[in-house]
C-alpha cells in the first residue's frame, strides 16, 4: 500500500464518520424534545457536515481522479463507505443519541487534538478546526448524560439501555490496521490505541458519577473500516443518495 492510497482511505474513513453521524443527528430536526435542543443537535449535524466536506474534498484531491466531495458523498456503493458502525445505528431515543455523541465526541476530541500535530498540513488544519467543535459536542453530551443519569427513574433506565446497546460499537474507534500503520510511520496518522485509556477514563468517570455500571470488557463489533456495514447503512444511503441517483449532476 502506498502512502497516497493510505491517505485516501484515511480521509474517507474520517469523512464518512462525520457524514453518516451528521445524517443521524439531522434526523432530530423538528423532532427534538425542545426547540433549543433541536437547534443544538442540528448545529452539531452541520459541524459534522462541514468536517465531512473538508475531508471528502481532500480525499478527492489525493485520489487525483477528479472526484468531488459530492461524487464521494453521493455516488459510492455501500461497501465503499468506511465509517465506524456506531455512526450508522438508528437514531433511537434521545438517550441513544446523547450516548452516541458522548462516545464519539470524546474520542474525536482526543483524536483530533493529536491530529493537529500531523505532518500532513491539510489534515492538521482540519483537525485544528474540528477539535473545538468536538470539545463542545463532548461537553454538551456529558451534561445531558448527567441530567439523564440523575434525572427520573425512566431517564436513568434509558441511559443505561443506551450505554449497553452502544458499548459493543466503541472498540472500532481504536482499531488500527495497515492504513493507519503506513501513515503513522510518516507521522501523519494518530495512534488510535494510545488514546483509548484517556477515553475510557473520561467515560467511566461520568458514568460512575451518575451511578451507571461501566460495562466490562466484551465482544466488540467490527467491519466499518472494511466497508462491511449493519443492515441500517443501506437505508441511509437510499435516502441520502436519492437525488443524485435520480437526477445525476443536479444543481441548485
Amino acid at each position: 500500500m502506498t502512502e497516497k492510497e493510505a491517505l485516501f482511505s484515511y480521509c474517507l474513513r474520517l469523512g464518512d464518520d462525520a457524514l453518516i453521524h451528521s445524517y443521524r443527528l439531522s434526523e432530530w430536526c423538528r423532532n427534538a424534545p425542545m426547540l433549543e435542543e433541536d437547534l443544538a443537535l442540528t448545529n452539531f449535524a452541520l459541524d459534522l457536515t462541514g468536517r465531512a466536506r473538508a475531508l471528502l474534498t481532500y480525499a478527492g484531491e489525493i485520489e487525483g481522479k477528479g472526484r468531488t466531495e459530492d461524487d464521494l458523498a453521493y455516488r459510492r456503493e455501500e461497501r465503499h463507505y468506511f465509517n465506524n458502525l456506531i455512526c450508522e445505528l438508528p437514531k433511537g431515543d434521545f438517550a441513544t443519541t446523547i450516548v452516541r455523541l458522548l462516545f464519539t465526541a470524546t474520542q474525536e476530541h482526543l483524536f483530533y487534538s493529536e491530529l493537529t500535530h500531523s505532518q500532513d498540513g491539510t489534515l492538521a488544519a482540519i483537525a485544528a478546526k474540528t477539535v473545538k467543535e468536538a470539545q463542545y459536542h463532548m461537553v454538551h453530551a456529558s451534561d445531558w448524560v448527567r441530567r439523564l443519569g440523575l434525572g427520573t427513574e425512566e431517564s436513568h433506565e434509558r441511559l443505561e439501555r443506551a450505554i449497553d446497546e452502544l458499548c459493543p460499537y466503541t472498540g472500532e474507534m481504536f482499531e488500527t490496521d495497515k492504513v493507519v500503520a503506513v501513515l503513522q510511520d510518516k507521522n501523519i496518522a494518530v495512534d488510535n490505541a494510545a488514546i483509548r485509556s484517556n477515553w475510557k477514563t473520561y467515560i467511566e468517570d461520568i458514568l460512575r458519577e451518575v451511578g451507571v455500571m461501566v460495562p466490562g470488557s466484551q465482544h466488540m463489533q467490527t467491519g466499518g473500516r472494511k466497508g462491511i456495514h449493519t443492515e441500517y447503512m443501506g437505508h441511509i444511503l437510499t435516502e441520502m443518495q436519492y437525488l443524485q441517483r435520480t437526477y445525476p449532476d443536479a444543481t441548485w
Binding site: L35, E36, A40, D143
Partner: peptide
C-alpha cells in the same frame, strides 16, 4: 428554556 445554568448557556449559544 433550560433546567440549569449550564444548559441555559449552551442553549443560548446554540
Amino acid at each position: 428554556h433550560a433546567s440549569d445554568k449550564r444548559m441555559a448557556l449552551q442553549n443560548a449559544r446554540d
